[in-house]
């Protein structure tokens, strides 16, 4: 009983902070999502409109388009980051000349603020002055203009996100790989297992918790990407890169439609939680059940 009391006392500051900065804002957003509220309009008071915002959202083509674009972006970006991150982590597990230097510079994108990443990539991809369109044209004869081509804009954002966040995946997977015991690998090699079998039956199951945690972090980040995209394309051309975060921003700030913006935020949070939970259940729960 005494230890429980001490535990609660030690936890109290964290719980208080979580309540005021996590739970309370969340409850407030859910509350606002059931209202029509434009605080800068002639009548700035909140008007309760039941579930009308949710009724509207399922028919809102701009929102559904944003959802589709965001899902495509998340799939391309996160899958690529995990694959490239794992390959880099495996590479860093071996010795090669200049390893320490390369490992240092490969983590540099991580310390850059997303808004800076967006502006740097904007400079690099602007047709008249950017290095990327220049060399694409010079070497391959490809004309790239992210201001007019929707696929070019979309895939530039995907590549930018991969460049920015793959080091995070690499670092977490290096940590996971370093902590693996050597015995199972040696036994598998003695038993004649090939590299593919070792990967699927030993490495992957053993790094699964770290991998899942990394995928969760990247999924949640990718679903609410705003600043990089806002700097690079502003959601255009048209609405081809208007991701959910950008859509919420445009709904809440330029249109000052706080009620409907909150509804979109709640739905995005719901989708994020459901996707992460499904991933967790499908990949980690079977392991836990087997242990039990």
């Amino acid at each position: 009983m005494r230890s429980n009391k001490l535990g609660w006392i030690l936890l109290a500051p964290t719980l208080l902070i979580l309540f005021f900065f996590g739970v309370l804002p969340f409850v407030y957003v859910v509350f606002v999502s059931f209202h029509q509220w434009n605080p800068f309009a002639a009548s700035p008071e909140m008007i309760f409109n039941g579930a009308d915002n949710f009724r509207r959202i399922v028919f809102d083509s701009a929102f559904l388009n944003s959802l589709g674009v965001t899902v495509a972006f998340v799939l391309f970006a996160v899958i690529s980051e995990v694959i490239i991150g794992y390959m880099l982590a495996q590479a860093f597990m071996r010795e090669f000349p200049g390893k320490a230097f390369f490992r240092t510079i490969h983590t540099l994108p991580l310390i850059m603020a997303p808004i800076i990443v967006g502006s740097v990539w904007k400079l690099m991809t602007t047709p008249s002055i950017g290095i990327i369109p220049h060399y694409l044209d010079k070497w391959f004869g490809i004309s790239m203009n992210i201001g007019t081509s929707a696929p070019a804009a979309f895939f530039t954002i995907v590549v930018m996100d991969i460049w920015h966040w793959t080091p995070l995946v690499t670092l977490t997977l290096i940590a996971a790989l370093v902590s693996l015991p050597r015995d199972p690998f040696e036994q598998a090699q003695i038993d004649g297992a090939n590299k593919r079998q070792i990967f699927w039956h030993i490495t992957l199951p053993m790094i699964a918790p770290a991998l899942i945690a990394t995928v969760f972090i990247r999924l949640m980040d990718a679903l609410r990407t705003v600043d990089e995209v806002w700097m690079l394309t502003g959601g255009g051309p048209g609405s081809s890169t208007r991701f959910l975060g950008v859509h919420i921003f445009k709904e809440v700030f330029p249109k000052t439609n706080y009620g409907y913006g909150s509804t979109i935020s709640v739905i995005v949070l719901y989708l994020t939680i459901v996707v992460c939970w499904l991933l967790y259940v499908s990949m980690l729960a079977p392991r836990n059940n087997r242990k039990g």
């Binding site: 579930a51 949710f54 959202i57 399922v58 739905i267 719901y270 939680i273 459901v274 939970w277 259940v281 729960a285 836990n288 059940n289 039990g292």
Partner: peptide, 21 residues
């Protein structure tokens, strides 16, 4: 899957929101 009461409450809320939409 094995669940505690909070997991089952969570699943119920998720289904409620999905069904409503």
């Amino acid at each position: 899957i094995e669940t505690n009461w909070f997991d089952r409450l969570f699943i119920s809320v998720v289904i409620w929101v999905a069904l409503s939409l």
